[in-house]
Amino acid sequence: MKETNNTVKQIDFILDKIRHDLNITAGTMKRILQIQPEITIFTPEQLARFNGKNGNPAYIAVNGTVYDVTNNAAWAAATHFGLTTGQDLSDEFASCHPGQPILNNLRVVGKLVQNE
């Protein structure tokens, strides 16, 4: 048990050092750490299925990252100020949320890739 505690302390120390060296906020670090080891890759067509309808989760993509907004109050009914889930909203977020710090509070579920 003592060895496990030391390992956890070492990992915490390393993560704090990385956060400090990269000059990123704790919220950004939390979002980075929420990325699943096996990242899900979404095409625009696949992302469209995650529109919050018929029991599906509600996902959005911003700058190539796919976020889960299913339980986010701002995205009630899978919409937010006329925007709907299941699509790439990079341009819309850039104009409404410069720097997009609001995304730090959302769970990352994958990456969006464009069809070739």
Results as ranks from 00 to 15, higher is better:
80 H>Q: 00
87 Q>G: 01
51 N>T: 02
39 I>N: 10
50 F>D: 04
95 S>C: 10
100 Q>G: 03
102 I>F: 14
68 D>L: 07
9 K>P: 07
61 A>T: 09
32 I>F: 13
50 F>R: 11
42 F>L: 07
77 A>V: 06
43 T>I: 01
111 K>V: 11
73 A>V: 05
111 K>I: 12
24 I>P: 03
103 L>H: 06
21 D>C: 12
66 V>I: 05
5 N>T: 06
46 Q>S: 07
67 Y>V: 00
31 R>M: 13
87 Q>P: 01
47 L>H: 11
39 I>R: 13
89 L>R: 05
16 D>K: 15
40 T>C: 05
84 T>M: 01
91 D>N: 08
53 K>R: 13
56 N>P: 04
82 G>P: 07
18 I>C: 11
93 F>E: 07
49 R>K: 15
7 T>A: 15
5 N>P: 00
21 D>W: 04
42 F>P: 04
8 V>C: 01
53 K>V: 12
105 N>H: 06
30 K>G: 01
20 H>F: 13
107 R>V: 06
41 I>N: 08
34 Q>N: 15
67 Y>F: 02
75 W>M: 12
92 E>P: 01
41 I>C: 10
108 V>T: 10
51 N>R: 05
87 Q>F: 00
105 N>V: 07
48 A>V: 08
105 N>D: 12
8 V>P: 01
5 N>L: 05
72 N>V: 01
35 I>P: 05
100 Q>V: 02
33 L>S: 11
18 I>R: 10
71 N>D: 08
81 F>A: 02
104 N>R: 13
12 D>A: 12
91 D>W: 03
60 I>G: 10
91 D>Y: 09
93 F>K: 02
70 T>Y: 12
17 K>V: 09
49 R>W: 01
69 V>D: 02
13 F>N: 10
29 M>A: 04
101 P>Q: 15
80 H>R: 02
24 I>V: 15
25 T>C: 06
34 Q>A: 13
98 P>A: 08
102 I>Q: 15
58 A>V: 03
107 R>L: 10
12 D>W: 07
63 N>H: 04
58 A>F: 03
82 G>F: 06
66 V>D: 09
76 A>W: 04
106 L>Q: 05
25 T>N: 01
20 H>P: 00
65 T>C: 09
78 A>K: 08
84 T>S: 01
27 G>H: 14
7 T>W: 13
109 V>A: 15
99 G>W: 02
77 A>S: 14
102 I>R: 11
107 R>E: 13
34 Q>L: 12
19 R>A: 10
26 A>N: 07
27 G>N: 15
34 Q>F: 05
12 D>G: 09
35 I>Y: 05
46 Q>R: 10
39 I>Y: 09
33 L>T: 03
75 W>S: 12
31 R>G: 04
10 Q>C: 01
17 K>W: 14
71 N>Q: 02
15 L>V: 09
96 C>T: 10
68 D>R: 06
50 F>Y: 11
13 F>W: 10
87 Q>C: 03
100 Q>E: 10
64 G>A: 08
84 T>K: 08
11 I>S: 13
88 D>E: 07
88 D>K: 05
99 G>E: 12
17 K>A: 14
98 P>V: 06
102 I>P: 08
24 I>M: 14
70 T>I: 14
